[in-house]
Write a protein that binds this DNA or RNA. Structure first.
Lengths: 380, 380
DNA sequence: GACACTAAGTTCAGAAAATGAACAAATCAA
DNA sequence: TTGATTTGTTCATTTTCTGAACTTAGTGTC
C-alpha cells in the first residue's frame, strides 16, 4: 500500500510524521508547493485513509484545519529477541500497544521466523482491522545490523554472523520485515513516538546489563560506516583498567553496566542482587557500595560528557530498566557530566532520564517497521 | 547565477559535485529520472557553461560520455583569519589555487570587510574570467559559527561575540559571503576537493597550536545543536589533570596540542621550539622528551579511538602543520588508537595523515563558498 | 568488412504534476 | 453588518517528466 503512494504523497506523510499535525497551508510552505497542489495531495491521502482532519485552529481569518496521520491506517508488529520468552506486540501508527503476546526465543533464525508466523494469527485475533492493515514486522536484537535493516552482521548474544533474518521472516510470513539493534530501535521509537519527536540531534544511552547507545543526527538514525556508531560501551574510560570481554581494557562496560556493578559488588562481598540494593547499602553509609556507585557513575558521566563534546546533541536520553536515577548513582552521573563538559555548554544539553518497562524493546522493534512505512528505507 | 537554476538542474549539479563525473544515464538512475528528462537538463547545463563533457567510457554498446562540472564556471575567494597577514586565495571550482595575496589582519569586522573589498581587484587583476564569474567569498576563523554560516557566535582569538561578519562583507563587497570555523572549513574542502570526496562519514582532526575537529555525517557537515560538534579538544582525557583555559581540567588540549607540548617541554627544561626539536631529542634518548611525546600521543590516540567508537567514521584525517608523523609522536598516536578501539574494528577505520601548508585555511575558506554554490546553504 | 548486438543518448507526442489567479468559506474585529 | 483576513478549492495554463521509437557509436563474430 505504501508503494502505491506518489512521491509527493510520501513527502507529505514524512513531514507530518516528523513535525506532527499541520494545516494544508503550513505543509505547502514546508514542501515548497503551492496551496493548489497541496489541496489535491491532501484529499488523495484523506481518501486513502492515511490522513484525517483533527483540530481546528482559530486565529485571524479562516481557521486552519490540522491534518494528522490516521493512527489506524497501518499496524505493526514488534518483537524483542532480548528476552526469553520473546515479547511480541501489535501497535498502531501512534505507537500505542494494542495487543501483546510472547513466543519462545531461539537461536535458529528459521525457528524464530516460524514462531513469529505461527504467533501472528493469535496476536491479530481480536483485531480484524489490524490484520487487514498489517504493514510491517520489526525485530530488535542485540548485535550489529547492516544499513538495509535486513541482515544481522554479528550478534554475540545470539551467536550469529551474517544472518539475513529479515529476509527469512519476510519469506515465511509474507510481511515486510526489518530488524534493528536494540538501542537504535529505542532511539527510533523515541523519535517517532516519544520525547524526541521534535529534536533533530539526540543520543539515547540505554543502561541495562550492557550499555547501548544510538545517535540521531539531522533527524536520521546514524549507524556509522560499519554499523558501529554508538558503541559507547567500549570507549576506554579507565586506561589500563580491568579486561573487558571485548579484548581490550578499561571499557565503560566493565565499570558502569548493571552487570559490572553487580559483579564488582559481589567481588567486594556485598550481598546485593540489584541496583536498588546497592543504592540502599550506600545510603546507609556502606563505604564499598558508595565507592562502587561513585566509580560507575563518574565513568558513565565522563563518557556522556565526551559524547556531548564530540557531537553536541540537542538531548541525551538515558533509559534504564533497573533501579532509579534518584539515588547516588544518578547524582554522580549528572555531576560527572557537568564537570566534564565545556563550562560554556554546561547545562545546555538536556539530560532526560526515562525508566522503561519490559515493552521498550518490542515497542522499539515495532517503531522500526513504522519508520520504514512512514519514512521509507533509504530516506530519499 | 546559481539562483537561476531549476531544482532539477541544482540536483544534478549536486550529484556530480558529490559523486564526480557521471554519464547522463547514470545520473538519470541516481536521480530517479528518465533518460529523456536527463537529456534535456544536461543540455541546458552544458549550454549554461556549468557542465562539460569529459572522458568517453567504452564498454559494450554505445560508449558513455561523462559529464563534469566545468572548473571555470565559477570562482571563489577564500580568506583565513588565523594568521597575520591573512592569506587570501582565488580558486576555481576544482579547488585549484589561481592567485594568492595577503591582507592585514584586524579584529574589527568593518576593517576586515574593507580590507577584503580593497584587495579583491588586485587578486582578480590577471584573471578577467574569474572577475566576471566570482561566485562567493569564504572566510575561515577560529571560533563558533552558526548554521547560517553568517554569524560568528563566539571567537576567543578575535574576541568576538555574535558578529555578523558574512553580512558585513556581503554588504561591502556585493558578493555572496559565508564564514566557517577553521576545522569545519578544512573538512568541507577535503570533502569537495580532497581525499574524502567519496566518503560519506569522516572526521578531520586538525593538529596545530590548538586541536580542531569536524565531522561529516551522511555526506553533510554536522555542526551539532549549538555549533559545538567536534569540540574534541575539550574532551576530558586525564580526569583531574591540569587546568585548561576553558575552565575545566584534563582536556585533550592541555596535553596534545602543539602549544601544550611546547609548554610542557619548556617547563621540563627542554630547549625546544618546535615539535621536530622535541622529536629529535627523543630520538637521542632524552627521557623527558620521550615522556612528553608519549603522553601527548597516547592522549590524542585515546581521544581519536573514542571518536571512532562513538561515531564509527569511514575515515579519520589528521592534518598537521608542524613536524611530521613519522616520529615517536605519530607512532604512539597510531598505537593508542589501535589499543583503544574494539578489536573487532581495529584497523577498519583508515587513519590518514596529511601535512598541510599555509594555504589550508584559505583553501578551506574558499571551499565554503564553493560548497554554498554547489550544494546550497540548506542542502534541501 | 558485413553483420548482429548492445547500450547511450535524442526526439517528440502525450501524460502527469505544479502553478497562478480568482474565488468560496470561515472566522474576527469594529 | 461590514470589512479584513486567512484557509482552502477550483480550473485553465504551464512546466516537467515519461514512454516508446529512434539514432548513434561503439564491440564482437564470422
Amino acid at each position: 500500500m505504501n508503494a502505491l503512494l506518489t512521491s509527493s504523497q510520501r513527502q507529505l506523510v514524512r513531514v507530518i510524521s516528523t513535525s506532527g499535525p499541520l494545516s494544508r497551508t503550513e505543509m505547502a510552505q514546508m514542501l515548497g508547493l503551492s496551496k493548489a497542489a497541496m489541496s489535491g495531495i491532501a484529499r488523495e491521502l484523506i481518501d486513502l485513509g492515511v490522513l484525517h482532519e483533527t483540530e481546528t485552529v482559530y486565529g485571524q481569518g479562516r481557521p486552519s484545519v490540522r491534518l494528522d496521520l490516521h493512527p489506524e491506517c497501518a499496524f505493526f508488529v514488534g518483537i524483542s529477541l532480548l528476552e526469553d520468552p520473546a515479547p511480541m506486540i501489535l501497535s498502531d501508527l501512534n505507537g500505542r500497544i494494542i495487543a501483546r503476546r510472547a513466543m519462545p526465543l531461539s537461536r535458529d533464525p528459521n525457528v524464530i521466523a516460524d514462531a513469529i508466523t505461527e504467533s501472528l494469527p493469535d496476536l491479530l485475533k481480536a483485531h480484524p482491522d489490524a490484520k487487514e492493515k498489517l504493514s510491517g514486522i520489526g525485530v530488535a536484537l542485540s548485535g550489529f545490523v547492516d544499513e538495509t535493516q535486513s541482515n544481522c552482521v554479528q550478534s554475540t548474544l545470539l551467536n550469529w554472523q551474517d544472518v539475513p533474518l529479515a529476509r527469512i521472516i519476510r519469506e515465511r510470513s509474507g510481511i515486510d520485515t526489518f530488524i534493528e539493534n536494540d538501542a537504535k530501535a529505542v532511539a527510533v521509537s523515541e523519535k517517532l513516538f516519544g520525547s524526541a519527536r521534535e529534536i533533530q540531534n539526540f543520543s539515547v544511552v540505554s543502561l541495562g546489563d550492557g550499555i547501548g547507545c544510538a545517535h540521531f543526527i539531522d533527524g536520521k538514525l546514524y549507524r556509522g560506516n560499519h554499523g558501529g556508531a554508538g558503541e559507547i560501551a567500549h570507549c576506554t574510560i579507565e586506561p589500563g583498567g580491568a579486561p573487558c570481554r571485548c579484548g581490550k581494557r578499561g571499557c565503560l562496560d566493565t565499570v558502569s553496566s548493571m552487570k559490572a556493578i553487580k559483579e564488582v559488588s559481589r567481588a567486594e562481598g556485598l550481598e546485593c542482587t540489584s541496583l536498588s540494593d546497592i543504592e540502599h547499602e550506600a545510603s546507609t553509609g556502606n563505604a564499598a557500595a558508595i565507592r562502587i556507585l561513585h566509580r560507575a557513575g563518574s565513568a558513565l558521566g565522563l563518557a556522556i560528557a565526551n559524547l556531548i563534546q564530540m557531537n553536541d546533541p540537542g538531548m541525551i536520553l538515558i533509559t534504564h530498566v533497573e533501579g532509579s536515577f534518584d539515588g547516588l548513582f544518578g547524582t554522580v552521573v549528572n555531576q560527572a557530566i557537568e564537570t566534564n563538559v565545556l563550562p560554556r555548554y554546561a547545562g545546555q544539553t538536556p539530560i532526560r532520564i526515562k525508566r522503561v518497562d519490559g515493552d521498550v524493546w518490542a515497542r522499539g522493534a515495532a517503531s522500526i517497521a513504522a519508520h520504514n512505512f512512514l519514512i521509507g528505507p533509504n530516506s530519499n
